[in-house]
Design a protein around this nucleic acid. Sequence first.
DNA 1: GTTAGGG
DNA 2: CCCTAAC
Length: 650
Amino acid sequence: MCAFDLLATVAGKILHEKESSPTSSNTSNEKNRCVSVQKAWENEDNPVKIEPSFQESSDKRVLVSELLHQAGDQNFSYRESPLPQNDVHSGLASVVTTDCSEIFVAEKLVNGEKNNEMGSFTSNVDLGFSGYRDSGNCKLDCENKLIIKDDPHKTGKVPIGIGADMCSLEDPVVCDGRPPALVSSDSSVKVPLCGDHIPCSSFPAIRDDVKIVSRDDDENSSGCTHPSTIAKSIRPVSRIADRRIRKILASRYWKVSSKLKEETLSNVDGDLKLICRNRKGYYKRQRSQMNIPFKKRKIFQRSSVSNSDRWISYEGNSHSTEKGINGDDLGSCLKMHGASGTSSSVIGQHTSIQSRDSYVKLRIKSFRVPELLIEMSETATVGSLKRAVMEAVTSILGGGLRVGVLLQGKKVRDDNKTLQQTGIAHDHPLDALGFTLEPNPAQNPPPLCPRDSSCMLPCDVPPPLTRHPLDSTVVHQGDSHASPEPRAANLGTFIESDHDSAPSPTDTSVDKSTTDSKALVAVSAMDVDTLAVVPVHRKLKRSEMAQRRIRRPFSVTEVEALVQAVEKLGTGRWRDVKLRAFDNAKHRTYVDLKDKWKTLVHTARISPQQRRGEPVPQELLDRVLCAHAYWSQQQAKQQLKQQPETCLLL
DNA sequence: GTTAGGG
DNA sequence: CCCTAAC
């Protein structure tokens, strides 16, 4: 019986290989000028060009550096996965991990024991995490590694590890290091300890006006407000990073029995639920490990991150794989999987070859990420640029991915061909093999779990790329000639998803890039420019708008400024409070201040043990209560005052 | 656009 | 923080 363990992990890597400032733009309106991260060959003058990692640089290529050893068990046979292995997005076997070290993701389910082979079809599809073990650290900034190993002597495990090079999201936000943004709004005025409206005895120490100055150019920026909150400022970023990383590192953790049978189907539902439940638990674990705040809602692409060294394995045949690729949801994938007891020609061939040489061992160090086009205003912050890139990546990944295989720069289209037939196994040096992550045209699979379920599944999966009007139009022709291999392939697949989704019957096993170009349409620089902006911007806007604002806990300094302003102005003049003390803190709206005051009052009233977050000095809390009482009293007085007046009027 | 209050 | 009603 076949017992091929396949682990697939996916990670992208976005690098700015080159970043230059925009050349002088004597023409354009400063405000409208944009910085573009665009294809290198577009060679425009004005925009800053940032070339993502689509070049042929060695570190960005997927390397296949190891040969698979033949499984020790002679009964082992290689079999293509029934799951959409070239559709990572929907792939059932893909695993993501944020562990920077090699993360072993799969647990071999099938040990190839003879007594379980062929004859035994009672196996089920086990999708649970029951065997999950915490692994060590969860650094996100480690080298991107995806390793598929197959220990020939240990039939139990086939590790796939992946690090997230692109996930340098824990990098501290660069702060400008300027002094605390606590400034006096009116240094010339010696403000008495007592506010204008407040009896001196009311407030112990009202110092000069305190104004919080935010240095955020961008309201959404996560930059530091002031040094005292550097550590906290990082948090929101990490939070987002965490969220997005999960999107990007969308993965699944699968454990699929090797024995496939119709009966398996009956287990699918139950197993799915199991997954969901376990995911929650797992997620919690991961969260605590990463110590990165997260958003409760809509965070997850239906995937989870696995740090475990467990194995995922599955098997199947090329037929089911193909179906899976075509956008079937999990259920159907599983069903097909379950029904994949039928053997395909592939399997047959492999089983017939029992020699060790019939196994190919792959080591994928990293995946190239499809082309990204980003355009931003020059005045945008670095943080927003990062987010834009992240959004772009997320949109791609969220829209569905599949894996493309390149052999010597040529795209291998025929999923039914064996490695042997394709020449991957022996005919070519291993480094001739490459993988790409490509947008999956038809991929927008339904969530695995109901929206309200606790499982962390994607609820706001961005629309598939194919929905974008550009998908059918944004294309590049010249590129395929200029750079026949990786980039052409990347770009081509990025754009020609529609074309690719319906390969013509005449497709050969290995296409030449040149061949792809037939489906590509040249786009003028201007078009590209336009196109480059629209999608990203739209997506950004949409997702950005749909997104909650970043939570930015108030620092003690801010609290102090707020307290002081309220002491002076009262509780009903939030706009004035804002203008007085937070005028330059763009991210603090008067509603925020009002809300904060509300929580401050609440905080002051509860016991210190019940308080959470950064502790607010008791002194400030006392002042909060004091001011609150005072102004409440004032309000009551005011009302009493008005009562008689209205009475008199009547 | 602000304010107030519930979620 | 979000949302909304009320002003």
